[in-house]
């Protein structure tokens, strides 16, 4: 056990924790925006898988990472259009529709993979970018400033999301339609349009989360996410719909995950326990978040379709 608590190992754990937190953070921030507008999307895990496959396939065929990222974003946006039609145009129950989107994403990405790829082949991974100067700082340099571009994007999106929701007119519209759509409607704010845009933002960010995951791993396999998207939805609740708290939750999840991986790699946890240990991040994070979570009420109109009366 003692060789675990060395500086090198701890730096490695923090570094990989930050890296592992990236897809959770991207998906969680997007889901926060969607939920703030009053729309729950349980389907982001499926969106992530479709986007992940698209990015994987494009990179596999073109060897161009930028094209892969764009493909993943586009698929996320298209799924957002679908989800918007289902929940806003047809006003379907959000919980069930989201599960439908998840199953569709899971199954369709699997089908496409079997048909178009078959046996997994590795692709190019995202390069690590060392931020000049900062990455040379002792300890924090390696842990925080030697990551792939999407990790930086994810963390930059935290203040961007805070600013967007808190300080822009469109953010104000989103918060208003999530709390009292009738009030927004009475002032000429289009509830449908606002929610549609929020859903598009949320799904596109879920798509980017899938991209981040697959381009980090450099390989695709069916059910790549293994429920990651659902954890991201949970992080939004536990993070009380605040981007900064969602980030804290994602980091906590990433760090616990990294610790368990590190412990396994060093044989500190016996192999026979490794299945149980794999559950540890989920259990520990949820316990920690339940304890830390403030009792904050979510958007009052969350999951409620808007019907004028």
């Amino acid at each position: 056990m003692s060789d675990f608590f060395t500086l090198t190992v701890l730096v490695a754990v923090v570094g990989s924790g930050v890296r592992l937190a990236t897809p959770y953070l991207l998906a969680g921030l997007g889901e926060t925006v969607g939920q703030k507008s009053g729309v729950l999307n349980l389907g982001i895990d499926g969106v992530m898988q479709l986007s992940a496959f698209s990015a994987y396939f494009v990179v596999l065929k073109t060897d161009n990472l930028m094209l892969g990222v764009l493909a993943g974003l586009a698929v996320g946006a298209v799924m957002g259009v679908f989800y918007g039609v289902i929940t806003i145009v047809f006003k379907a129950t959000q919980g069930i529709s989201g599960i439908g989107i998840f199953i569709f994403g899971l199954g369709f990405s699997d089908l496409l993979f079997q048909r178009l790829v078959g046996t997994p082949k590795p692709i190019r991974q995202l390069p690590t970018i060392e931020i000049p100067f900062l990455s040379e700082l002792p300890v924090v340099g390696e842990a925080l400033f030697q990551h792939n571009p999407l990790t930086y994007v994810a963390f930059i999106l935290v203040p961007v999301t805070i600013l967007f929701l808190g300080k822009t007119t469109f953010g104000l519209n989103i918060r208003a339609v999530g709390e009292n759509p009738h009030a927004a409607d009475s002032l000429g704010v289009s509830v449908e349009r606002t929610r549609y845009v929020a859903i598009l933002i949320g799904n596109t960010m879920a798509g980017l989360a899938g991209v981040a995951l697959v381009l980090e791993l450099g390989i695709f396999q069916p059910n790549l996410t293994q429920g990651l998207g659902f954890i991201a939805v949970a992080l939004v609740y536990f993070g009380s719909w605040r981007p900064s708290h969602v980030m804290a939750g994602a980091l906590l999840y990433g760090l616990v995950n990294a610790t368990v991986l590190q412990l396994k790699a060093r044989n500190i946890i016996p192999l026979s326990f490794s299945e149980l240990a794999a559950m540890a991040p989920a259990v520990l994070t949820i316990v920690a978040l339940v304890i830390l979570a403030q009792r904050v009420k979510g958007p009052a109109a969350l999951t409620k379709p808007f019907i004028r009366h």
Binding site: T169, L172, R175, E179, N180, A184, L187
Partner: peptide
Amino acid sequence: MLVPPLTVAENVALG
């Protein structure tokens, strides 16, 4: 037709 968690100014500015 008010949004309770928002401030008075935000409620007025809405739309």
